[in-house]
Amino acid sequence: MQYVFLCYHNEKEVFAWSKEHETQVIEKLLAVQEKLAQQGRLGPVARLMPTSTATTLHKNREPAVVTDGPFAETREQLLGFYVIECKDQEEAIETARELGVANPGGAYEFRPILMLQR
């Protein structure tokens, strides 16, 4: 089953990382990604631009309203996502842990994808 792994992290902290630290984290993540790719499980990987670049359309009102910024002001922000094939919940948890070791801090929310269309 395909899962989406949503990466939440304190954006201010992430942007305060030194270049060396950033490089280290990315290298460790790439190693995990490589492994998943070799297993044929890795789907799209996205790293998002900062939330300052986000815009939100609130369509719960009429007319719909466009505002600057992410949908919700949260302590941790959505910074990226993975689509990864996992055979069951246990494998999903294990995958999240592996990614989490490469990139500690914040959280991964992972959820099965009902339908993914390319």
Binding site: F15, A16, T51, S52, T67, D68
Partner: peptide
Amino acid sequence: IRLARLLVGLFPSDPETLGLL
């Protein structure tokens, strides 16, 4: 740049603040 980002976080809809960043 970090301070400009901080400012944008405080005033996400202010055009000149966005312009500065």
